[in-house]
């Protein structure tokens, strides 16, 4: 049985205590997307501002949730800010792979399967995000960890469609 320290690494608690990029962005120009975890009631709001060249100029996170969902969102915001949308999608795919989400695995809402089809650039580094790997040992918490990422992906899809 995995212990609490496998789940709650210090860096996770640090991001929970001091979330990066917390707040709101003006919409427009930023795009606002909400995500829900219907099981536990967690809500996340991702504000993402992309420019015409397809770069994530700014990102802010709102909403409330547990330490896993909040720290994952915080680390995500730090990881994708300043990157291109394409890189951000790659990081998302790499992170979901870290969470062991494959086409036949949990979720299966289509968007995840699609994301998983992406060829992930071997140069993509997850860095701090790898601290969340312990979540895999607590299957009910995987949805907490992926909530922000699914919401970000949805935001990118909505921006593409607009």
């Amino acid at each position: 049985m995995a212990g609490l320290e496998d789940l709650y690494r210090e860096i996770i608690l640090d991001h929970y205590r001091s979330p990066r990029n917390k707040g709101e962005l003006e919409t427009p120009p930023a795009h606002r997307t909400e995500g829900f975890n219907p099981l536990c009631g967690d809500e996340i709001v991702v504000y993402v501002d992309t420019d015409d060249d397809g770069n994530v100029n700014d990102i802010k996170i709102g909403g409330q949730g547990c330490s896993i969902s909040q720290s994952s969102a915080s680390m995500m915001s730090a990881a994708v800010k300043g990157k291109s949308v394409e890189e951000a999608r790659q990081i998302t795919s790499a992170f979901k792979r870290l969470m062991s989400i494959h086409e036949t695995s949990v979720g299966g809402d289509g968007s995840e399967a699609e994301a998983d089809d992406l060829e992930i650039d071997p140069d993509i580094k997850l860095g701090d995000l790898e601290a969340l790997q312990g979540v895999v040992k607590f299957p009910t918490r995987i949805k907490c960890a992926t909530l922000a990422w699914n919401t970000l992906n949805q935001a990118f899809d909505e921006i593409d469609e607009a």
Binding site: G3, L4, L7, Y8, L39, C40, G41, D42, Q64, G65, C66, S67, I68, S69, Q70, F138, R141, C144
Partner: peptide, 29 residues
């Protein structure tokens, strides 16, 4: 300052089974 999900994770370490969440009563929450 501690989310219900995290509370129940720690409680599980103590073999205490409780339910975190909105309890299917979101308007009340």
């Amino acid at each position: 300052d501690v989310h219900a999900h995290d509370v129940s994770q720690v409680l599980d370490e103590h073999a205490v089974c409780i339910r975190p969440g909105h309890h299917c009563a979101k308007p009340l929450m």
